[in-house]
Amino acid sequence: MKSNLLTLASLAGLTNAALRFGCSSLVIQRLDPVVQPGSIPSAHIHQIVGGNAFNATMEGDVGSRATCTTCSFSEDFSNYWTAVLYFRARNGSYHRVPQYPNAVAHDGQIGGMTIYYTQESFTSNGNQKITAFKPGFRMLVGNAANDKKDGTTVGLRYTCLQTILTRGFETAEFPKEPCPAGIMAIQHFPACWDGKNLDSPDHMSHMYNTGKGGFRVADPCPASHPVRMPQVAYETMWNTTMFNDKSLWPEDGSQPFVWSTGDGTGYSAHGDYLFGWKDDSLQRAMDSDCFFRDCGANRGGPLLVQSPEEQNACLVQQTVVDQIEGWIDELPGWSEKRR
Rank of each mutant, 00 (worst) to 15 (best):
A83E: 07
P41D: 06
N91S: 06
H106F: 11
G63H: 01
I115C: 08
A53Q: 11
E120Q: 15
G63K: 01
A105C: 03
A43G: 06
A103C: 04
K134E: 15
P135F: 09
S121K: 15
T57W: 02
A56K: 09
F73W: 03
T131K: 02
G111F: 02
V97I: 13
M58E: 02
I40K: 09
H44D: 03
G51R: 09
Y117F: 15
R65V: 13
C71T: 00
S124V: 14
G51E: 13
G50C: 09
T69V: 02
E59R: 05
R88N: 14
N55T: 15
G126Y: 07
G38H: 08
M113C: 11
Y86L: 12
F137E: 13
I110N: 06
N125Q: 11
Y117I: 04
G126M: 07
N55F: 07
T57P: 00
V34Q: 05
S42H: 06
C68F: 10
M113A: 13
S72R: 13
H95M: 08
G108R: 11
G51P: 12
S39L: 14
F133K: 09
F77N: 03
A103L: 03
G126Q: 07
G60P: 07
K134I: 14
L140S: 09
I130E: 00
P37M: 08
K134C: 11
V62Y: 04
Y100L: 14
G136T: 06
